[in-house]
Design a protein around this nucleic acid. Sequence first.
DNA 1: GCCATTAGTCAAAGCGCTTTGGAAGATTTG
DNA 2: CAAATCTTCCAAAGCGCTTTGACTAATGGC
Lengths: 344, 344
Amino acid sequence: MNLKQFSKTLGLSQTTVSRALNGYPEVSAATRARVEQAAQKHGYTPNFSARNLATGQARAIGHVIPVSSQYEVVNPVFADLIAGASTVYSANGYELSLSIVENANEAQVYRDLKARGSVAGVIVHAPEMDDNRVALLDSIQLPFAVHGRVSTHTKPYCWVDMNNRTAFQRATELLLDLGHRRIGLINGIETKDFAYRRREGYSDALAARGLPLDPALMRSGEMTEEAGYTGVIEMLAQKNPPTAFLISSMVSAFGARRGIEDSGLVMGQDISIVSHDDELAYLQNSGETPIFTSTRSSVREAGRLLAESLIAAIKHPNDPPPQVLLKADLRLGRSTGAAPSAKP
Amino acid sequence: MNLKQFSKTLGLSQTTVSRALNGYPEVSAATRARVEQAAQKHGYTPNFSARNLATGQARAIGHVIPVSSQYEVVNPVFADLIAGASTVYSANGYELSLSIVENANEAQVYRDLKARGSVAGVIVHAPEMDDNRVALLDSIQLPFAVHGRVSTHTKPYCWVDMNNRTAFQRATELLLDLGHRRIGLINGIETKDFAYRRREGYSDALAARGLPLDPALMRSGEMTEEAGYTGVIEMLAQKNPPTAFLISSMVSAFGARRGIEDSGLVMGQDISIVSHDDELAYLQNSGETPIFTSTRSSVREAGRLLAESLIAAIKHPNDPPPQVLLKADLRLGRSTGAAPSAKP
DNA sequence: GCCATTAGTCAAAGCGCTTTGGAAGATTTG
DNA sequence: CAAATCTTCCAAAGCGCTTTGACTAATGGC
């Protein structure tokens, strides 16, 4: 069923039907109702390719997910982020086009998306500190929204981020207040902007108390369960081991917990942990008292906001780009306690 | 840059350029090389919407991911599956269109995708035992490939699945051989085909040894970390607790491990665990000796095979539909040992 | 040397939609 | 009551591509 046939059924012209369906004012309320009902009944839906071609703009948003060839890990937060964004897209009649791309080829993918006209805009995932994608997208005039920020980019652009730095600063302060003096950091890949900011928060908090930054207490890498485990095992094996850990992801936090237990220690007693919690649905850190003390910020919510921001930016290209800063909660759980040496 | 301009640059007609780029034989090798080079140089890429409209077929595959409104969990295996499929799509010039949909609306989404012509085919995720989507897709003639099977569907259709039943049967037998007599099953939602089959494998193995099926030892639900934890805690609190668990997902297995430790027991000694392992990149069950004894089957590989199968089915609609059965490995790790009672 | 064949190229139609520029009918206005 | 203004609808152009059918030039067979 195409427009031609469908409008013939109704005894109307294609123009009128198209306008009725797309909410143009030049059509009477009665006609519109009739058209909409008939569309429902006959299951008429405009062909997307034809519409995109005619309007010159695809009703689709691209998510370009980078995968480092080195790690081959698809970060599990993407799934939740996309789930959040997806609800907004379908509410606004957009489709979601996903590309999983090796870091190296990313620039080309953006260019292709633009040239093929298959998306109206893109979400930029996991930006680097000095990400050149933002500049690229600006120059090829493909609307975008960044999940996170790019510290080195000065011109205003659309982003949704959490307060990574402040959240980790507060988390570190909490551990310091509990008497911990040697705090291990198990962080994401620190060329990524979020991880860089988190480390800044951590080191700022230490510096504010006059404590030195010890490279032996800092790990950076893909946030797997294994990374949390080995990070803990290795640091605890040092001569002057940490009494607490700050961890960038719940997945790794579960690994850290395993490491602590394998070391014959008790979490929240011998060793404290504060983790960041993206509120992934299958890795809930809940219960009356959560397992982990955590900085909390829903990545699904971030997805929703990103989608809304990008759609707004597409609709109103001349408005200043939307920017949203989410504030992570610091929630106490069972994984933190006074430092052993500070106890009576 | 569109085809008209581009072909003018070359002094050729649109026809010839189009044919050169799409590998038609009616064009000389010299001309083809010249066209391809120029396309590269000028960054010409055909507009997807126009191409799709002209061919009447979108170069895109739809992934429709169901989210139960009850649980709101996006299963983390989707991310890895899609990562696998994605490589095949880009190699074949397909885009990937993702829809996350509440179970209830799924049928409508398929109809819409067909009507809008925005995909050439779809991947069906997480099929139910008596899934009616397969029949629907057959009837609206939208090519598809199912990740898993639909036990109640008799006509041949395209699928990629692992041997859920046999794998879980073997896993149960292993535990039985180790002397375990009471084995808890922490399974996915058992209206889903994969979970149903796994339970069949479990109960078959018990029945073969003349052991009864105890409903008190069986849990079914979304495979979260929490589900593994509570499953273990609750079952261990029973008067006649199990000495081993069979678990449908690594995520839950990590939760189960936490439950065992919180109960003051030692995994692999007091309590054995066999888990299914989808080989998710961030939840590696590796090391010289893996943490968990597991049935192993890469979901990323399944994604690759699904994509290939679907593309084949689209290209050759009259061939018998591809069907692939993956055999899960049974890998010994540190989580299994002889049943306590069986020890000297 | 002439006709049949093949290789290489082209002009134009058509995919299904949106949108421009009018036109016809209904309504108001002076 | 004719002119002006809405309101409501329409015919046709155009979006950028693929593909059909035709045409020209080169090749081969006799």
